[in-house]
Design a protein around this nucleic acid. Structure first.
Lengths: 157, 157
DNA sequence: TCGTCGATGTCAAAGCTTTGACATATCGGA
DNA sequence: TCCGATATGTCAAAGCTTTGACATCGACGA
């Protein structure tokens, strides 16, 4: 007769490890660990690599742009950028004509270093992609996008 | 005539934001941010909440057990556990009859605090679950599991 | 019996990330 | 014109996490 007063998880699974949130975390942790392992041999961190990849595709991105794209704060992005700058992989002007955003660009050495690690990183992504049935890839991408979009509402305001 | 010598990403997408790895990261970042926001109001961090939830389901887990389950190092798990202990939410014996593993247990206050936050956290998970078509849920869980398993090989050895 | 191996707990140091705060620069409306 | 709102870069402090190292304990095989 008593109604169940305990909060019900959206997934009434007896096993936490089968919840979406847990699997999402596990998959992301595994990807991060695999990339870390590979990048470490080349002296790069994951955020550093991501930044190089983004700058190769979109030269001139600002620190704030990159921070948003890599899901860290501006302050953290600043540290990453300075590390890459000290390593000679990117350049940033110290001043600008218009606005405050300082556009970053890969140096020749930056392009070279990126090319060095891409093969290793793409091998990791290949392992990941080949693990899922090809006909499900589109749906998977769509679902991940939906999850992110649904959660971002109310978080970013 | 020339073959393309540049490393080809497994996803020959012109847009990085459509890669599996990127979407995985984005979804996980959104989930983390949403949970952080909700838990902060109750004075808990995500690892602390995860630990409470795990201990509620599996009383007596050791620090090493919990660290593995929450994807952090033993050292980091130790910090989390001490925080919960200082807050009076869990108890750990200082010695044990057999072995070195120290089994952790929720206190009454720990159970109470967990109950307080569950409604809020489950609301976040509900938003996530409702974002994906129900008939795709099973496939999504299976795919995430496959991705994690594929990447864990060779990482953990 | 005994020694090696793996697992666990913990301390210390370094590294990365976030929170908080502040100055600067652009834009738009009063 | 001028003020407020928004965006950007940066400094400082605190917090969390990892890497590295060490001691302890049980299991297993020689």
């Amino acid at each position: 007769m008593m109604a169940d007063m305990s909060p019900q998880p959206p997934h009434p699974a007896d096993d936490i490890t089968q919840h979406v949130g847990y699997l999402l975390k596990r998959a992301q942790a595994a990807l991060r660990a695999a990339m870390d392992k590979v990048l470490r041999e080349h002296g790069l961190t994951v955020p550093q690599y991501s930044t190089l990849e983004l700058l190769a595709l979109h030269p001139g991105m600002s620190n704030a742009d990159l921070a948003r794209a890599t899901f860290v704060t501006r302050q953290s992005g600043n540290v990453v950028l300075r590390g890459l700058q000290d390593a000679g992989l990117i350049t940033r002007p110290t001043t600008t004509d218009h606005g405050r955003a300082l556009p970053a660009h890969l140096t020749d050495e930056g392009h070279a270093r990126l090319a060095e690690v891409q093969a290793a990183v793409y091998a990791v992504e290949k392992r990941m992609v080949e693990a899922i049935p090809p006909q499900r890839m589109t749906a998977l991408l769509a679902d991940l996008d939906r999850i992110a979009t649904a959660l971002e509402r109310g978080t970013t305001q």
